[in-house]
Write a protein that binds this DNA or RNA. Structure first.
Length: 316
RNA sequence: GCAAAGCAAUCGGUUG
C-alpha cells in the first residue's frame, strides 16, 4: 500500500493525473494516505469537484482529505464553500493543520476581524501556527509583535527563521535581516535564496554574489534571483552570463532577462530575448508589453498585445 | 516506531 501510494503521488506531481487515478483504481487495498494523496492530486490539478466526491463518498476520507479540499476552495477564493467545508469537518474533527489553513485563508483573503476571530478559536499552536503569526504581524507593520512572537515561540525551524528574516527586510531593516540569517542554526536552499534576495534588494550586490557563490547548491530560483540582482546593479553582462550558463531556466528566468534589459535601457536586447523564447506564455507576453510601454514605446507595446491575441493567448 | 498525504518562509510582469 505504501509503495502504490508513493507511486500515485509521484505520478500526480509529475502532472500525470490519469496515471495516478489508474493506480488508485488498481490498488487492492488502500489506507487514509492513499485517499488523501488522490484528493491532493485532484486539487493540485484544479479538479476540485472530483476531490469533493472523494471526500464525500467514502468512509476512508479523513481530516487530511477534508483539509486539502478546504484549502483548494480557499486558494480559489471560494470562501463560502471553504467555510461550509470547515463546518462539515466538525464530525470527523479538525486538527492543527486544519486550523492553520483556516487562519491562512483569512490572512490571504479576509478581513482582520475574521482573522482575529479565528485567532481566538485556534485550540493549540504548532510551529506552522507560530510562523504564520509572525508573517501576518510583520506584513501588517507589526514588526515588534512579530519579533515578540518569534522570541516567545515554543518551536522554531528553518522556515520560522527565514520568515523572520523576510519580516525585517520587508520593514526596511536590512541589517537586522542579515543578522537573523547569520544567527540561523540551520539553512536550506530556500533560506539561502531569501538571503540572496534580501542582499540584492538592499543594493548590496557584492553580498548577493558572495551568497550565490557560498550556497551549497543552486536551483532555478537562485539563478533568477541572481539575474535580477545583477540587473539591479546595472551589470547586464553578468546577468546574461548566469542565464546562459544555468543548467535550468524557466519562464521566470526569461521574464527576468527581458525586464532587466528594459530597466537598463537595453530595449533592443529585451526584444531580441523575447523572440528567443521557445514557448511564450502569458507571463512572457506581459513582460515584453510592459518593457516596451515603460520604455516609452507605446506603439510597440500595443503591437505586441495584438500579436499575443493573434497567437491565441488570453490576457490575464 | 520507520517510509507515502493536507497548513507557514524565497525569484519575474501587471496592481498597489
Amino acid at each position: 500500500v505504501v509503495t502504490y501510494t508513493a507511486m500515485l503521488s509521484a505520478y500526480a506531481k509529475k502532472g500525470h493525473l490519469e496515471d495516478a487515478r489508474r493506480i488508485f483504481e488498481k490498488m487492492p487495498q488502500t489506507n487514509g494516505f492513499t485517499w488523501s494523496s488522490m484528493v491532493t492530486a485532484y486539487t493540485t490539478h484544479g479538479v476540485i469537484d472530483q476531490a469533493k466526491l472523494l471526500c464525500e463518498n467514502t468512509p476512508a476520507s479523513n481530516v487530511v482529505t477534508w483539509t486539502t479540499l478546504f484549502q483548494a476552495y480557499a486558494h480559489n477564493g471560494h470562501l463560502e464553500l471553504a467555510k461550509l467545508t470547515f463546518d462539515r469537518m466538525a464530525g470527523i474533527g479538525r486538527d492543527i493543520a486544519s486550523w492553520n489553513a483556516m487562519f491562512q485563508m483569512y490572512a490571504d483573503h479576509g478581513h482582520s476581524g475574521m482573522l482575529q476571530e479565528i485567532f481566538q478559536r485556534i485550540p493549540c499552536w504548532n510551529v506552522v501556527t507560530w510562523t504564520a503569526m509572525i508573517v501576518v504581524n510583520a506584513q501588517d507593520g507589526g514588526l515588534d509583535s512579530a519579533q515578540r512572537l518569534f522570541d516567545g515561540s515554543v518551536e522554531r525551524n528553518v522556515i520560522t527563521w527565514t520568515a523572520m528574516m523576510v519580516a525585517y527586510s520587508q520593514n526596511l531593516r536590512p541589517e537586522e535581516a542579515y543578522s537573523v540569517f547569520e544567527k540561523m542554526p540551520h539553512r536550506n536552499l530556500y533560506s539561502w535564496n531569501t538571503a540572496l534576495t534580501v542582499y540584492a534588494q538592499n543594493g548590496d550586490l557584492s553580498l548577493a554574489k558572495d551568497a550565490f557563490d557560498s550556497m551549497p547548491e543552486h536551483d532555478v530560483v537562485s539563478t533568477n534571483a541572481m539575474i535580477a540582482a545583477f540587473f539591479a546593479g546595472g551589470e547586464s553582462l553578468a546577468a546574461q552570463e548566469i542565464f546562459d550558463s544555468s543548467p535550468a531556466i524557466n519562464s521566470v528566468s526569461w521574464s527576468a532577462m527581458i525586464s532587466g534589459y528594459a530597466q537598463n535601457a537595453q530595449l533592443e536586447l529585451a526584444n531580441r530575448t523575447f523572440h528567443r523564447i521557445p514557448r511564450k506564455d502569458v507571463l512572457a507576453w506581459s513582460t515584453i508589453i510592459a518593457a516596451n510601454a515603460h520604455s516609452g514605446h507605446c506603439a510597440a507595446a500595443i503591437a505586441f498585445f495584438q500579436s499575443m491575441m493573434l497567437a491565441g493567448e488570453t490576457p490575464d
